[in-house]
C-alpha cells in the first residue's frame, strides 16, 4: 500500500506534465495558425501617418497663434 503512493505520485506527474505540455503545444499551434489566418484575411488598416502629421502641424499653428495673442495682450 505504501509503495503504491510514490508510484501513484509519479503517475500523476506523467499525466499532469503530459497534459500541460499537450495543451500548450496545441495552443502554440493554434496561435500560429490564427495569426497567419488573421494577417492574410483581416489585415489591420495601417494607421494613416499623413493625418497625424497634419494634426501636429495644426497644433503648432494653434500654439503659435495663442502665444502671439498672449504677447499682443501683454504689450497692450
Amino acid at each position: 500500500m505504501d509503495t503504491n503512493l510514490v508510484v501513484e505520485g509519479l503517475k500523476f506527474m506523467a499525466l499532469g506534465m503530459g497534459t500541460v505540455f499537450a495543451f500548450l503545444i496545441i495552443l502554440i499551434a493554434v496561435m500560429y495558425a490564427m495569426s497567419a489566418i488573421i494577417h492574410k484575411f483581416f489585415p489591420e488598416p495601417q494607421p494613416n501617418m499623413e493625418t497625424n502629421q497634419a494634426g501636429t502641424q495644426d497644433n503648432k499653428k494653434i500654439i503659435a497663434a495663442i502665444s502671439a495673442a498672449i504677447t499682443h495682450h501683454r504689450k497692450g
Binding site: 503512493l5 510514490v6 505520485g9 506527474m13 499532469g16
Partner: peptide, 14 residues
C-alpha cells in the same frame, strides 16, 4: 514544480 513536489510530498509520507 507542482508535480515534482507532489512526488516529494508522497515520498515524505512514504
Amino acid at each position: 514544480g507542482i508535480f515534482g513536489t507532489l512526488v516529494g510530498a508522497v515520498a515524505l509520507s512514504h
